[in-house]
Amino acid sequence: MKKIVITGQSGFIGSHLYNYLKYVSKDFEIIPFEDHFFKDEAKLKSIVKKADVLVHLAALNRHNDPDEIFKTNKQLVEKIINACNATNSKPHIIFASSTQEARDNPYGLSKKEGRLMFSKWAREKGATFTGLIIPNVFGPFGRPFYNSVVATFSYQLIHNKTPKIEVDARLKLIYVQELIEEIHRIIHKTIGNEKYYIKHTEETRVSEILTILTQYKNNYIIQNAIPELQTEFKRNLFNTFRSYIDIDKFYPVYLEKREDNRGFLVESVKERTGGQLFYSFTLPGITRGNHFHIRKIERFCVIKGQAIIRLRKIGTRKIVEYEVDGNNPAFIDIPIWYTHNITNIGKDEMITLFWSNEIFNPDDTDTFFEKV
């Protein structure tokens, strides 16, 4: 197995790459990297020496002092090159540059400079180097006001703030999972290219993004309805949008119970997209699940019996628990990248209604097993 080092492992793209390699593909050995290793010369040398592949994602995107952006990003590249030279190491280096290389700003200039420095080193040492030119990246768990306008707008809408459009630019976008899968392919095939363009998968205006996200708030947050998600882009936007919900406070969402002399009726799923509805019978003490998804949207609704639904975000230890009862109908939607399970804690059989935005495909289940 190739040994992989990811600088910026705790960042937006880095955490997605780390989780994908560790929990989904499982075909590489990941050498853990922490940002403070850049300040420890001996540690950095030790890490570099072990690496077959080094994916350099660590970078300073924003700072009050523009000169600090260029200076910091250049220094990070220099430290990696110096560590490689000192240990006579020649890992395949994959460097995350940006389409902002073409712009006259400190971030873009620092990325271009770093790519050229790595290119020169690789040619001199006979090493493999891939300089990624990446368009705007969006996806779940990005940092608002830092990583992308999608993250910023989603955060603001969820927290009842009013987004503002500074410039209604036309953006070329790629979803973070699409980027990760391309990096995974580059690692597997050892693709070397000093200027490797990552193709965008969507092009749209900032105002169009805000319109869609505002519709998601109106549909999902206010009306408890799953919005129309007929394209991958809209599904990816929705999964990004809902990643900013505080699941500790938002769920369970209690449903209206309409009762009369016949019994009662509950509208458990309102959706404007396709999908699949199914149900299960679970015996007392039995647990179902212990898996996560990276694209599916799921809704759980216990309609008879008592249960505990547990969620844990991949890569973290915190477990969120919801105790639900069929006599007090409520739903819980499962975020992507959260492993989850449901346990019957009652004395009788439990009936659970499940909804997913896609029909089950045994050849592409999007289901990865991991205990909560």
Rank of each mutant, 00 (worst) to 15 (best):
G263C: 07
F264A: 09
S280R: 09
L283V: 02
E271Q: 13
K234G: 00
I226W: 04
I245N: 14
V253P: 02
L255N: 09
Q276S: 09
Q223F: 04
S280T: 15
I247H: 11
V253H: 02
Q223M: 03
Y251E: 05
R242A: 10
R235E: 11
E228S: 06
V269E: 11
F241P: 05
S268R: 06
D248H: 12
N236I: 02
T231H: 00
N261V: 12
F278C: 10
Q230F: 03
E267F: 00
V266P: 13
N224T: 02
R242L: 08
V266Y: 13
R258A: 14
Q276E: 15
R242V: 14
K249I: 12
K270N: 01
K249H: 15
A225M: 08
L265G: 07
V253F: 02
S268P: 07
N224D: 08
Q230E: 05
D248V: 01
R235P: 00
P252M: 08
R272G: 13
I245D: 15
E259M: 10
Y251T: 03
F278V: 08
R242D: 13
Y279N: 13
A225H: 01
P252F: 07
E256V: 10
V266S: 14
N236T: 05
L277P: 01
L237N: 01
N236Y: 07
L265Y: 14
N261L: 10
G285V: 04
I247A: 12
F281N: 07
I222M: 08
S268G: 11
E232H: 01
K249W: 09
G275D: 05
N239Q: 12
K257R: 11
F238W: 12
G274H: 03
V266I: 11
K257E: 13
G274Q: 06
G263M: 05
F238E: 12
T273C: 15
I226A: 06
L277H: 14
P252Q: 09
A225K: 07
T273N: 15
S243N: 11
I226R: 01
F278R: 10
P227M: 01
L229W: 05
I222F: 10
L265K: 11
F241Y: 12
K270T: 01
T282A: 05
D248N: 12
V266T: 15
R235I: 09
S243G: 13
F281P: 00
F241N: 03
F250K: 08
L277M: 14
G274C: 02
Q223P: 00
T240Y: 02
E271N: 11
Y254H: 15
R235G: 03
R235M: 06
Q223A: 10
I222R: 06
P252L: 06
R242C: 12
G274K: 04
I222K: 11
F233S: 01
N239Y: 01
Y254A: 12
F264L: 06
S243C: 11
N224G: 00
P284M: 03
T231K: 00
I222G: 02
N239E: 09
N236D: 13
D260I: 02
N236W: 04
Y244A: 13
F250S: 14
V266F: 13
I226Y: 07
F241T: 03
V253C: 08
L237C: 01
E259H: 08
V266G: 15
G274P: 00
D248G: 00
V269K: 11
Q276P: 03
R258P: 00
Q230I: 00
D248Y: 04
E259C: 12
N236F: 06
Q230V: 00
F278H: 11
F238M: 12
